[in-house]
């Protein structure tokens, strides 16, 4: 869907912000661009909708060069969410959310229906908020409206620049989870900028880790954590990267890959739902709550037990496989 072909950005004739960037974002994928500040991730994002010009190379959006597209028309087909939500204080929530449909000339009925659908989607009551103004809403609510606004004209592609960065941790986690649910339903192609490795691991299908305008590694979160391409990546994802990667697997993944142990009568045991992450499982085992965890599915059927040995075995296997 989005193809970066040798994209280069040079400022003032000599400062290279992006150097020969090559990667693809496939249909329906959520790709997070990650990196320290000044690595060029935001610049790269803004080159897609041409808020920044491309010095050399090109970006193909659905097979069309963004350089040669009509900027205004193209931007109306790309959802855009920024950190500070950028809602317009002079317009009420409905006008804010419906700004692109309004530009596209939708009729009132269609806009009203769309507004209602979107607000339900982002978890706000449409009638309660329709005539309110941005400043009457909390930061989290404003950002929900920001997301609704980006989705308004049902664009296939979304660009999100640290959309949850300005929110407090609890609200941020909420919105991340809700947004993942929305994405599961809508399957948009999303390019997302973040500086938070945990956010990236949690949300991304693939992570693009940048440094100094160059791609350090472009891979699935599990692969990046288990098999960092170089020392910079290893350092950036953190020394606890293996533990982080554990949150990407569920107990069920382990149960499918390896045979579970029979439940031993001599060990202290606790139950664990198979849909929980391995990180939770490890935590329970380390916490001396139990020496073995009895795996059960949603119906409570006992499927066998796991111990730290078994998780270790699984880990070795995964790390080897992802080579």
């Amino acid at each position: 869907m989005i193809h970066f072909n040798d994209v280069t950005k040079v400022y003032n004739g000599n400062v290279k912000a992006i150097e020969n960037m090559n990667f693809n974002v496939e249909d329906g994928e959520l790709v997070i661009m990650l990196g320290p500040s000044g690595c060029g991730k935001t610049t790269l994002l803004r080159m897609v909708n041409q808020l920044e010009s491309i010095t050399d190379g090109d970006i193909m959006l659905n097979g069309k060069s963004v350089k040669h597209s009509n900027k205004i028309e193209m931007r109306r087909n790309i959802g855009y969410v920024i950190q500070s939500n950028g809602l317009f204080p002079n317009m009420n929530i409905e006008d804010n959310a419906m700004i692109v449909p309004n530009l596209l000339g939708w009729d009132r009925k269609k806009m009203r229906d769309r507004f209602n659908t979107l607000m339900e989607l982002v978890g706000l009551n449409p009638d309660q908020y329709r005539k309110r103004f941005p400043h009457e809403l909390s930061g989290g609510q404003q950002q929900r409206v920001g997301v609704a606004r980006a989705l308004a004209a049902d664009p296939p592609v979304m660009l999100m620049d640290e959309p949850f960065g300005a929110l407090d941790p609890i609200i941020r986690t909420h919105l991340q989870e809700e947004f993942l649910q929305i994405q599961k339903e809508l399957k948009k192609t999303i390019l997302f900028v973040s500086h938070d490795i945990d956010e990236a691991v949690k949300m991304a299908d693939k992570i693009a880790l940048l440094k100094g305008g160059q791609m350090m590694q472009y891979a699935e979160p599990a692969k990046m954590l288990n098999k960092p391409a170089n020392s910079f990546v290893a350092e950036f994802v953190g020394q606890d990267r293996v533990l982080k990667s554990m949150s990407l697997y569920t107990v069920k993944d382990l149960a499918t890959a390896l045979t579970l142990k029979p439940v031993s009568e001599s060990l202290e045991a606790q139950n664990i739902n198979e849909n929980l992450s391995l990180r939770v499982a490890i935590s329970k085992l380390l916490n001396q709550e139990a020496d073995q965890l009895i795996v059960e599915n949603n119906n409570g059927t006992n499927k066998g037990s796991i111990t730290l040995d078994l998780i270790e075995q699984f880990l070795h296997r995964e790390i080897k496989e992802s080579v």
């Binding site: 920024i82 500070s84 809602l87 530009l103 606004r149």
Partner: peptide
């Protein structure tokens, strides 16, 4: 606010809009 202008541009408003 510059961010507001940025959001407006990014959504495809023309300069006069």
């Amino acid at each position: 606010d510059d961010d507001m202008i940025d959001a407006a541009k990014g959504m495809g408003l023309t300069n006069s809009q």
